[in-house]
Amino acid sequence: MIELKDITVSFGGVKPISGLTVTMGGRIQGLIGPNGAGKTTLLNVLSGFVTPVSGSITLFGENFGPVRAEARLENGITRSFQTPQVAADLTAADNIRVSFDSLGLSRADAHTQLTEVLALTGLTAQAEVMAGALDGYSLRMVEIARCLAAKPRLIMLDEPAAGLAADERARLMTLLKRLPDMGAQVLIIDHDFDLIGDLCDQVAVLDFGKLVASGPTQETLANPKVRAAYLGEDEEDAA
């Protein structure tokens, strides 16, 4: 459960997010908005990379404002990046082991959990392949596996389906749909209306750093204000 109250982010004179108050409680929660809406900035706020000038961040009932970015993983808050970010000179397995290192898991526990996470993400056969030699889909999976290795409460994915082929996208969606049953809330940022519509039970829509609408996915996506802000449709026509 993500609760943001009166969040304002300022970069010099620019405010990509201004007075944002929103609660995002979907099992698979979508976050959409046109370019420049403040989606990635919000993700960076939730990750601890960006400190808002005002407002409060409550995750699962706990105040995360003062929690350092490095400490979020051990608190079950994980994320992926728009472009997959992995250590190219480590194997896929070693990229995932970093999470176990951070959590201080024993070698035996780490091995057991690594086996599980590799199987879950379909990376078992590529475990010892250098990440620099993996294809785009596998890199996405390595990132997601690194998140899953932390047994997350919240896994935030920034455009996880970008650049994937249709079959890869289908496999990704199958995996993501399983995550809430494993105890993780999923927050997906994407431009893809179809993906959000298929995956998310709740969606929040941002535009110019402000909340346009939030609620059940189909209802929200049909909202005239959302269609006007996101698809450029005339608000009255959309209504």
Binding site: S47, F49, A69, A71, R72, R79, F81, A87, D101, S102
Partner: peptide, 8 residues
């Protein structure tokens, strides 16, 4: 950023 997100 990736190192921090991985808890390093």
């Amino acid at each position: 950023a990736v190192a921090k997100s991985a808890g390093v």
